[in-house]
């Protein structure tokens, strides 16, 4: 580790450092069968590295996303949730990804109402050929959630 980095880490509160290091977020990704899931598959075939925090749930189309799926994911302990569908204009079912985006936006308001940061929920669009992009999204989103911290719904540790 470079000397400057050691210094920065030591300067921080030891507890904060430990918590930040320990925190491995639970991330649920609802991926459409035709694009995002295929992209995730491609990322695997290409042996691209991305954090193991992302648990993928395959759905036939992001248009299948219901508000309650997203809410339940948070309720059951997800620290972050993202929905990934086809590129806009390229949805296999014409406009499933367009309605999904609207639902995601609406659900952001619903979680904000109960004190959960709306940034914990995002919508992404990518094609089935974009394996590297999928890995990038998984990395980006995981580090964002790490920055935000554990979900307020996680049981608080005593002390």
């Amino acid at each position: 580790m470079p000397e400057a980095a050691v210094e920065t880490v030591e300067k921080r509160e030891p507890q904060t450092v430990r918590a930040a290091e320990k925190f491995e977020p639970n991330i649920v990704a609802f991926c459409c069968h035709y694009c995002a899931f295929a992209a995730a598959d491609l990322a695997g075939v290409m042996r691209l590295q991305y954090p193991a925090n992302t648990k993928i749930i395959r759905i036939p189309c992001t248009g299948k996303i219901d508000i309650i799926y997203l809410l339940r994911a948070f309720e059951k302990g997800a620290d972050g949730v993202f929905v990934a569908g086809c590129l806009e204009g390229n949805c296999h079912f014409m406009k499933g990804n367009i309605v999904a985006r609207k639902r995601v936006e609406y659900t952001k308001k619903l979680i904000k109402d109960v004190g959960i940061e709306p940034e914990r929920l995002e919508m992404y669009n990518l094609s089935s050929a974009m394996g590297p992009r999928f890995a990038e999204i998984a990395r980006e989103f995981t580090s964002k959630i790490k920055e935000i911290g554990p979900s307020p719904l996680r049981p608080k540790r005593a002390g």
Binding site: D66, I67, I68, L71, R72, F74, E75, L110, I111, D113, V114, G115, I116, P152, L153
Partner: peptide, 17 residues
């Protein structure tokens, strides 16, 4: 019924916090 599910979920999240 659908909105019941949404509201109930929101309340559960609020109660937990």
């Amino acid at each position: 019924e659908k909105e019941v599910g949404i509201l109930a979920s929101q309340i559960r999240m609020k109660a937990k916090q």
